[in-house]
Nucleic acid binder design. Structure first.
Length: 954
RNA sequence: GCCGAAGUGGCGGAACUGGUAGACGCGCUGGACUCAAAAUCCAGUGUAAGCAAUUACGUGCGGGUUCGAGUCCCGCCUUCGGCACCA
């Protein structure tokens, strides 16, 4: 029997599918285990070798858990709504649902090729109406609820209306957008429209005006990272910040729980730190400064109320609501000019440019609450509208930015903290004694903070407050390929949720996917769909990419249920995700939104758990090498000129641009000396015909119009390319498809090789240098069973003790390493085991049979084949995990390193049960040791049983 | 700038709680088989000196703790990833 990889892998993949080997059902009484992968966006480029890294690890773990006796849920699906399909549709006219369907088919095939144990009967696709019906349903629930901070729980909006009816805003503990105060009487006399507006201020899904990066030329809203220097990254068109009425989700209501509940999760500290920083909780006070010559007051948030006597100016954000009112006629021109400047800058620009302070005086003043002094109000872009109250009290003596601003604007600085007693303290340490601070003088900072807040409270102009950096999530997109909102506006413009029976609200068919000229979603083109009876209209925005991915892990539990997003029965059994593996790029966004939705559904009583993912592992990225050649920016005699990397770098790289080359054409790809030869230049020209007439120059000569003119005796050019490590992406032409690797080496080999590359958390560029080692290992493993046409497995007699020891040692090591997700070292253990068994010429059934089971999670195909060749009928993947028999692990002898003063000088092999005193005697008696301790006094002997012996002499 | 992760042979990496640094694999060198090659098998392979036994040095750099440090502590350097001028 030969090891025919391709044949054998295809055979078992079909068999597993026919047998439903990986299908799972609820089995009451059997312990569950849920292993989840972050589902992919099915892009046109197909799956590349980076995707499977995490999938292989989770596949191994899921199989391992199943063999240990767990009922394992291990599903896969597709995050199928998204911008690329829509852009492809705009370019080619292919409907996003068609391209998405094709891409998914390809992904599914590629995943199948790798032998993953997904239960495909549970596949989800976020772009299918059966799925997004429930995304819409969850949105409606968010719309119909508000958050009660006192009960720390979402509650139905009717209960809030009831509260208003009875008490107005008295004793209200709701999360809200803007602060409101009214009596029950006032509520009752409000118009219906006004009441709806008020309720909108409290709903968990609500509409508000948000500033977006609007690009007129592209007719669309851009994300922060799509904007560079006030211009769109694509095309370089101007971008302005424009207010738009859009849907948002009140994730801020859950800030405290999102922060607090993280403690119990089995996530890395680094990841928790990222989420913690994102939420950004800070304790401080809100203070109201009364504005001179006005009956308004200016609210600020500060973490340092103790520094109130150091305030020398106030700053409001350029978008602050009160700014127009604060601006005096003689400052109007300056303020407006400044606003125009600010508008041209994206949020990212405003945040990244630290050095240069800008801002203008508004002309108004506030009154200091204690000294009564007049303090000027400025506006400056370093104060952000969405953080705190959008205004600060500036204390240049104790804040670097305020100081920089004061220096720029020529404003005074008042020292208020004496740190003489804490010479090493920095500002952020919050220590010191107050000076120049009236009633605070001499107090410690911490005491002063409390005293100031108390005084402010007495005067009713301030209070303690906890502030979060976290902002509400913008939930509207002006796009086609996303979930439509299940919302209808009546003729008064009041939004109403669609009746549950009418869900899903499906996307209307369209053939033009461009946004409308006035910036509305392409859905606005579908007049018949938008316009309803009685002047009612549908919402035309769609939901963002993270809508469908915020709850998909729940749908897998009960993927086809038409009655509910998931049945109670399935939830009671599967509970939550035990292990979630995915990339760090989703560390904040996706995980935060999922946790928020999960908690919300928990509040409504739909879920039994309040956190979705118990344990999380971030896999590293497998990067690619981007290969490019240097093109001289200036044409030479009207022709393009490409130069070898060596020549261009010796010249001046600024004069060149880099043109990426499809890596298939590169010789010695991924090495320092990757290059193009004659043949590859021809390929390149066929691929990019616009460079047909270009000149290619390298040290060996020049290529032009199909002719190579050598400088010396060479007959081929050797055009060195520029190589850099980066993301694998279609646009860099460096995608490596796992199918190609599988075709040559087989899926088992590919899987084990990716694991063998190193720890899963680590990022590394793809390279196949070591893959032969893994391939050889699998072949050697096979030869333990069969060589040429001979079946070697021996069924009679007892295996020898050495073989048994090796087997059980391997079982123990592999099991322990899987448990700590050290999968790369598992592969090494297997290699060592096979090497040893080969050396011992062991072919015994009692050794090989458990070994097949042990290898099954890693190399499922070869294991299944050998398992059946051993005469088994059912799948190896349903077999029990092999057990370690401790008795076999004990070796008869141990080898001790013997050190003198910590340096290893000799080795000593003794029976395992040698006692400590005897070990000391033997070590001291060794001739190799004698010469090192000669003439010295033995001060101490250190013996670590089973590990080492150290003689301390001096 | 801040936060996070990491620096170990020619390369990927191993060393779980402080205990033989370099497991395992690639590559390389030599040998066996072969007309030859591939494949396979055997041996060697951190650096330097030495015929050798052996010795010295060696985990980014500089200190420290310890019988003993890749691992712990202090100070630096470099690379990668993330980001918030957060009041």
């Amino acid at each position: 029997m030969e090891y025919r990889i391709q044949e054998l892998e295809a055979k078992w993949q079909s068999w597993w599918a026919e047998q439903g080997t990986y299908k799972v059902d609820l089995v009451p009484g059997r312990p569950k285990y849920y292993v989840l992968d972050m589902f992919p966006y099915p892009s046109g480029a197909g799956l590349h070798v980076g995707h499977p890294l995490g999938y292989i690890a989770s596949d191994i773990f899921a199989r391992f858990k199943r063999m240990e006796g767990y009922n394992v849920l291990h599903p896969m699906g597709f995050d199928a709504f998204g911008l690329p399909a829509e852009q492809y549709a705009i370019q080619t006219g292919v409907h996003p649902s068609d391209s998405t369907r094709d891409n998914i088919a390809r992904y599914r095939e590629q995943l199948r090729n790798l032998g993953f144990n997904y239960d495909w009967s549970r596949e989800v696709n976020t772009s299918e109406p059966d799925y997004y019906k429930w995304t819409q349903w969850i949105f409606i629930q968010l719309f119909l609820h508000w958050y009660d901070q006192k009960l720390q729980k979402a509650r139905p909006i009717q209960e809030l209306a009831g509260h208003f009816q009875q008490n107005g805003t008295n004793n209200l503990t709701a999360s809200f957008g803007e602060e409101m105060q009214f009596t029950a009487e006032e509520w009752r006399t409000m118009s219906n429209i006004r009441q709806e507006e008020v309720l909108m201020n409290y709903r968990l899904a609500y509409r508000r005006v948000s500033f977006v990066n609007w690009c007129e030329a592209l007719g669309t809203v851009l994300a922060n990272d799509e904007v560079k220097d006030g211009l769109s990254e694509r095309g370089g068109f101007p971008v302005e910040r424009r207010p738009m009425l859009q849907w948002s989700l009140r994730i801020t209501a859950y800030a405290e729980r999102l922060l607090h509940d993280m403690e119990e999760l089995n996530w890395s500290d680094a990841l928790k730190a990222m989420q913690r920083n994102w939420i950004g909780r800070s304790e401080g006070a809100r203070i109201f400064f009364s504005i001179s010559d006005s009956n308004h007051s200016l609210e600020v948030f500060t973490t340092r109320p103790d520094t109130i006597f150091g305030v020398t100016f106030m700053v409001v954000a350029p978008e602050h609501d009160l700014l127009p009112e604060l601006t005096t006629p003689d400052q109007k021109e300056k303020v407006e000019a400044y606003l125009q400047y600010v508008n041209s800058r994206s949020e990212r620009d405003r945040m990244s440019e630290v050095k240069q302070m800008t801002g203008v005086f508004t002309g108004s003043y506030v009154m200091h609450p204690f000294s009564g002094e007049q303090i000027p109000i400025w506006t400056a872009e370093y104060v952000l509208k969405d953080y705190g109250s959008g205004a600060i009290m500036a204390v240049p003596a104790d804040d670097d930015r305020d100081l920089a601003f004061a220096e720029m604007a020529g404003l005074p600085v008042i020292d208020i903290i004496d740190r003489a007693e804490w010479p090493d303290a920095k500002r952020e340490d919050k220590v010191g004694r107050m000076i120049h601070s009236d009633f605070l003088n001499g107090l410690l900072v911490s005491d002063a903070i409390q005293l100031v807040i108390d005084k402010l409270q007495e005067k009713a102009i301030g209070e303690r407050k906890i502030n979060y950096r976290l902002r509400d999530a913008l939930f509207s997109r002006q796009r086609y390929w996303g979930e439509p909102f299940p919302i209808i506006f009546d003729k008064d413009g009041i939004p109403h949720p669609v009746q549950e029976e009418e869900l899903p609200v499906t996307l209307p068919p369209l053939d033009n996917f461009k946004p409308t000229a006035d910036g509305h979603s392409p859905l606005a083109r579908a007049r018949d769909w938008v316009e309803l009876a009685d002047g009612a209209r549908r919402e035309t925005d769609t939901m963002p990419g993270y809508a469908g991915s915020s709850w998909y892990f729940l749908r897998y539990m009960d993927a086809d249920n038409p009655e509910a997003f998931v049945s109670r029965e399935a939830l009671e059994y599967w509970q939550d995700v035990d292990l979630y593996i995915g990339g760090t790029e989703h560390a904040v966004g996706h995980l935060m939104y999922s946790r928020f939705w999960h908690k919300f559904l928990f509040d409504l009583g739909y879920l039994p758990t309040n956190e979705p993912f118990r344990k999380l592992i971030n896999q590293g990225m497998i990067q690619g090498v981007i290969e490019s050649i240097y093109l001289l920016k200036e044409k030479v005699n009207g022709k393009h000129l490409f130069r070898c990397a060596g020549l261009a770098e010796a010249d001046d790289v600024q004069k060149y641009i880099q043109i990426p080359v499809l890596i298939d054409y590169i010789k010695e790809y991924g090495t320092d000396s990757s290059y193009l030869d004659l043949e590859s230049i021809k390929h390149f020209i066929d691929w990019r015909p616009e460079y047909r007439d270009a000149i290619f120059e390298c040290a060996k000569g020049t290529y032009e119009n199909g002719v190579f003119t050598p400088k010396g005796a060479e007959n081929s050019p050797h055009l060195y390319t520029h190589s850099e490590v980066g993301k694998m992406s279609k646009s860099k032409y460096n995608v490596i498809n796992p199918d190609d690797v599988v075709k040559v080496y087989g899926a088992d080999c590919f899987r084990m090789y990716e694991m063998f590359l190193g720890p899963i958390e680590q990022s590394k560029p793809w390279d196949t240098k070591g893959i032969d080692g893994v391939s050889k290992f699998l072949k050697r493993f096979w030869t333990l069973f069969s060589h040429q046409d001979q079946w070697l497995v021996q069924q009679t007699g007892e295996p020898d003790r050495d073989s048994l020891r090796i087997l059980h040692q391997t079982i123990q090591r592999v099991r322990d390493d899987i448990n700590r997700f050290s999968i790369n070292t598992c592969v090494s253990h297997f290699m060592i085991c096979v090497n040893e068994l080969k050396r011992l010429d062991c072919h015994h059934q009692e050794i090989l049979e458990p070994l097949v089971r042990l290898l099954a999670p890693f190399a499922p195909h070869i294991s299944e084949e050998l398992w059946h060749l051993l005469g088994k009928e059912s799948s190896v993947h349903h077999a029990d995990y092999p057990e370690v028999i401790e008795a076999y692990l004990v070796a008869d002898e141990v080898t001790y390193p013997v050190s003198v003063n910590g340096k290893r000088r000799a080795e000593m092999t003794v029976p395992t049960d040698t006692d400590q005193r005897r070990l000391e005697e033997l070590a001291l008696a060794m001739p190799e040791i004698g010469k090192w301790i000669d003439g010295l006094t033995i001060r101490k002997m250190i013996v670590v049983p089973g590990r080492m012996i150290n003689i301390v002499a001096g």
